[in-house]
């Protein structure tokens, strides 16, 4: 790599690689939007028993664990960010 490369913006082949890596993570997890919606509603249903959830702030997605955190292999992971308004302390 030349020094001048450091200041260059990403090449189109870099962009292609990045896009591929992302799209393959969701392809490999073979998770259809329908299935994703079902997972999402089931998670919400379970959590709602214990807490009041901020529905607008929910973010549930299949992403991936980076290769360096996982012994050299990228692996799909379920990422969920679910803001809680109030804990429900009356659960039996």
């Amino acid at each position: 790599m030349k020094l001048s490369d450091l200041f260059k913006k990403k090449t189109s082949s870099d962009i292609a690689k990045d896009r591929l890596k992302l799209v393959l993570v969701s392809d490999r997890a073979s998770c259809s939007p329908e299935l994703m919606a079902k997972i999402r509603s089931d998670i919400i249903e379970v959590l709602s028993k214990y807490a009041e959830i901020d529905m607008d702030g929910i973010d549930i997605n299949i992403t991936h664990i980076d290769a360096d955190e996982n012994g050299g292999k990228t692996a799909p992971a379920l990422y969920a960010n679910i803001p809680i308004k109030n804990m429900n302390h009356n659960v039996k």
Partner: peptide, 8 residues
């Protein structure tokens, strides 16, 4: 590939 416009 050399000019970064194709994946190798």
């Amino acid at each position: 590939i050399k000019r970064g416009d194709m994946m190798s």
